[in-house]
């Protein structure tokens, strides 16, 4: 471990009557409005955090529905024309025998988005109920959501590359379906939801001095 030790036990900036800058870590007296080091806005806690989290999360879940119902790819070959959804694409990959890639696509496009919806909802509910248990686990869940969330974009990029690459006039062409747009929107909304979450709220529950 490094050598940044606490003065006496752990105490938050808020308890010490101070406000910290989230960008650069500089600590100020609690009446400061802007950070003197990086000019960032100072807020001891983001009081509207949960509202924003829920709003973006619901938008993300709504956008996820058409993303799964409508086709992601429209493939046209000499003999046939077909459309495939996200799940359909995974099934096709399994038919070709590329199990590894099928797993990557399934995890990135189905499991991660659904897992993220549940994780963010759980974090928001636990903060609302002022739960003081599993703080470390919840913090890890928050970091995981922040880190992994972006990777859902894989499927959108795959569609972009396939559509650009497979343009062989009559033999075969691949074009993006409308689900690509709603899927991208769903990922963006969920990322915004995770970013709106103020992780400091997780740690406030066991602090009586923080009662508003």
């Amino acid at each position: 471990m490094g050598s940044a030790g606490t003065a006496n036990g752990t105490i938050t900036a808020r308890e010490a009557g101070l406000v910290a800058c989230r960008r650069c870590g500089q600590v100020h007296q609690s009446d400061a409005q802007f950070c003197k080091r990086c000019d960032g806005r100072l807020e001891s806690r983001d009081t509207q955090s949960l509202q924003k989290v829920w709003a973006w999360l619901i938008a993300g879940i709504i956008a996820f529905i058409p993303a799964n119902v409508y086709p992601m790819l429209r493939t046209a070959t000499l003999v046939e024309q077909s459309e495939s959804t996200i799940v359909g694409g995974v099934v096709d990959l399994l038919h070709y025998g590329s199990y590894g890639i099928a797993i990557i696509v399934f995890v990135a496009s189905i499991m991660i988005p659904v897992g993220k919806f549940m994780a963010i909802a759980y974090l928001a509910i636990s903060v609302q109920t002022k739960s003081a248990t599993h703080q470390h686990e919840r913090h890890i869940a928050y970091e995981a959501v922040e880190f992994i969330g972006r990777w859902s974009m894989i499927d959108v990029f795959v569609v972009a590359i396939l559509s650009a690459l497979v343009q062989l006039n009559t033999i075969a062409t691949i074009n993006p379906g409308i689900a690509a747009v709603s899927f991208a929107l769903s990922v963006i909304f969920t990322m915004l939801s995770a970013q709106s979450f103020d992780a400091r709220l997780i740690w406030d529950a066991d602090r009586t001095t923080n009662a508003r």
């Binding site: 606490t6 752990t10 900036a13 101070l18 800058c21 870590g25 600590v27 913090h139």
Partner: peptide, 10 residues
């Protein structure tokens, strides 16, 4: 002082 941006600990 440095405050943790994630949990506000000083």
């Amino acid at each position: 002082l440095v405050a943790c941006p994630q949990c506000d600990t000083l």
